[in-house]
Design a protein around this nucleic acid. Sequence first.
DNA 1: TCTGGGGTCCTAGGACCC
DNA 2: TCTGGGGTCCTAGGACCC
Length: 395
Amino acid sequence: VTVSFEEPIIHLDMDAFFVEVERLTRRELLGRPVAVGGTGPRSVVASASYEARRAGVHSAMPMAQARRLCPTLVIVPPDHGRYGEYSRRVFRVLESFTPMVEAVSVDEAFLDVSGLRLHFSNPVEVAEAIRGEIRSAVDLPASAGVGPNKLIAKLASREAKPDGVAAVRAGDVEAFLRSLPVRRLWGVGEATHASLERLGVRTIGDLADVPRNVLARTVGASLGAQLFDLARGIDDRTVAPAGGAKSHSVEQTYPTDISDPATLETELLRHSEELSFRLRRAGQAGRTVMIKVRFSDFATVARSRTLDSPTDVARDIFASARRLLAQVPTAGRRVRLLGVGVSSLTDHGAPRQLSVDRSPAWDEVSDAVGRIRDRFGVEAVGPARLARGPEDKVD
DNA sequence: TCTGGGGTCCTAGGACCC
DNA sequence: TCTGGGGTCCTAGGACCC
């Protein structure tokens, strides 16, 4: 397909990113069905190789199920630190082409290449050049979709996989969309899909036949208006570098449920420490503290509380979290997940007001702890309560 | 097949203020 | 006495994304 700079949006998507990063150093994984993910009883697949996908394995699938579907599956525990490094290398390549790069996740980005019209004859050439550079400089496969807007570029990159390029001309948008399953659309998840199915909508073409008011009644005003446009290939979203995070959180699903209240509190403290570390690293502090509790029956509750001033201090986060936990009836119930989060973030440079009942010394302690952790990691220093006992010592 | 972790955005009700 | 309308903030829950 020949495109022009009338179709200047590229969606760049790494192929089976985590798996391919692992294969760089573990050549024995080449050509085999591989899944990156935890090995615990409640783990899910984070990334699956194309060989594994052929057996029906996909991301977010319980690992136990993946094993059953594909008995020869090789399971590799995730190393997010390394994926982060490779992600940064990929983004450096993207930014060497244009500053108009918007990260969607560690392994995905939109680019507006309008500014490259003097250097390339069309955006497909740009996409091929980018893929080639990622291949030679980072040694990883990537796919790219090219189109007149984000929606079409994203749908095209899916068609391009693995290791290819697909482009859709503005004039061909309607024909391209018509037969695609409606589930592909951004914003149509499991619940919306079920609602649309009840209307008899299966494809994006079907969706385009639904009147605006029926759509709004079925899925709500906001999503309804959005889907009305997307079904017609209309998408005004611009490519804009993402701003800072709006919330941070730490959560964990435990291999076996927790019933003991003291253990719950200890876990809350651990999460608060980790959260404080990440806030400091991001140079942010938050005013709203949130906890999340998931019980053995998967029922999930959240409680939040907004403070007078933002904090990144573990002790303060923990104090709030603990009070919130006390509001949730946990007696006699088994907890499978516990989470702590912070939102209403402000940048660290912003003036921080000290609360009346806290001495400035705590800020200094917190800063010192943070500096130690920056050098030696989260585990290096912390509350006595989280210290490992002698039985855990390795040396 | 018993369902991760880290995020974003939307909805809806109530409090509170003018 | 039984009563408006709008704006903003807070809380809870849910859908969705990768």
